[in-house]
Design a protein around this nucleic acid. Structure first.
Lengths: 240, 240
DNA sequence: TCAAAAAATGACGTTACGTCAAAATATGGC
DNA sequence: GCCATATTTTGACGTAACGTCATTTTTTGA
């Protein structure tokens, strides 16, 4: 009992630190995230923060894991929606875009994680959890492709395994986020709505694959409308 | 004369510092790039390095500018090759991949540049130069699309301006690099040759666009072979 | 040869990292 | 309610890198 109360307190503080870390990350970016800053804002001492996280990279990955878990949830909802396998894939892309807009720097967080010298500092445990999540998400998308082949919506490609198709889509999606989160003047480049453009590029890939059933413009617009309505994710209210 | 000799000396040192910066960046990554380190390796003092570069971000961007200039050169060669506009686009992608492999962390360098809090520190001048290069490169690719439309290889898209098409391709390309430079176990994901997969995904987009003339597999393979032979770029020997 | 200009240096103040001995607090037996 | 023991919290410390700038060294040309 007593034990458990203590544990709850610790967990609460853990969340508090993460929360503060998230705020800093979203408002100002990883480069100003510091342990002392978190300690100060949380009104604890540095040492206490270090009892929860071995380094700031560890905070980063835990936030990434949280974010990726949300992404997975959204993806699951996308593939469970009414519709064709093709719709599901568009849904997944759409979900990813929604997700990236929750909080400012969702996409940038993952970026940081992937940079040289970051993963080295991270706990074995967190890294494992992260990798598993990554695999699960990859698997979920691959399932859609597999399903499409099984259903006959998609011809098995001669020169591209399902995994490779997923990798291509993943690249498109990631690249889109990266370009958007870098402060390119996309408007000046003539790209008014990058997310929509990415969705349309996705459609081009699907067309290229001959993925049935094709959409006409009206159907596509309707699909987007449906996704917009159904794939919402309120900014999570954390107060356990 | 004397003036000019002095200037040459300064320029030489400038290059030396950049060279060392590049080496560190390629071998160990941005997170260990430090002014003191460069000073030490160059056998100058920190202050001298600071006379050339206001901060380490400035070194980064100058290296990026150098790298992007090479990329532009390669792109120009790609579009000047014998072949259809479609071939040219594949060539551009291919060139980008080649380029990213020159030196370890070409792609990661650009990543760093795009991260929050980096651009703020950089000289107006360098930033301008970088932005211009970016625009030039974008423009070059857009030209291929425009040309294709003019030549009738590509139908003008109803829902996608040429700029948007380029943005989609750029995303694919960028994302591919990002995923490769992050240490994902792509092999374990079932992706043996990410670059080839990306090229095939590009082809899917082109197919989706109805970009003529389509390739059959043999033609595609031959194109790759040609590109492989013609788009080489020896690791530059800098010793001006 | 030497005074003035230019360039190079490294000590300094600052910030953040990550550690760890000491201080503060909580626990549980009496 | 008291105290010995265990646990938790703290912040001072050593290290590293940043960016600055007064001082020293070198160069220049009269």
């Amino acid at each position: 009992m007593t034990q458990s109360r203590k544990q709850r307190e610790i967990a609460k503080r853990h969340t508090l630190f993460l929360e503060i870390g998230k705020r800093i990350l979203e408002e100002e970016g990883f480069h100003v995230l510091s342990m002392e800053r978190i300690a100060e804002l949380a009104e604890y001492s540095k040492g206490t923060v270090y009892q929860h996280f071995t380094c700031k990279e560890e905070i980063l990955i835990q936030l990434c894991i949280e974010a990726m878990t949300q992404l997975l949830t959204l993806f699951k909802r996308a593939v469970n929606m009414e519709g064709s396998t093709r719709d599901h894939l568009v849904g997944i892309f759409f979900a990813q875009q929604r997700w990236a807009r929750l909080g400012q720097n969702r996409a940038e967080m993952l970026q940081h994680l992937s940079m040289h010298g970051v993963k080295d500092k991270i706990t074995e445990h967190s890294l494992l959890k992260h990798n598993q999540l990554e695999q699960t998400i990859f698997g979920l998308v691959k399932n859609v492709v597999d399903q499409a082949i099984k259903d006959g919506d998609l011809q098995k490609q001669k020169h591209m395994q399902p995994e490779e198709t997923v990798f291509g889509l993943w690249s498109l999606c990631t690249g889109g986020q990266v370009l958007q989160s870098s402060d390119l003047p996309l408007k000046k480049f003539g790209v008014d709505s990058p997310d929509l453009t990415l969705l349309r590029t996705l459609v081009l890939v699907l067309d290229g694959l001959g993925w049935q059933p094709m959409h006409n413009e009206t159907q596509f617009k309707n699909l987007l409308k449906r996704l917009d309505a159904e794939l919402t994710l309120e900014y999570e209210i954390t107060d356990n």
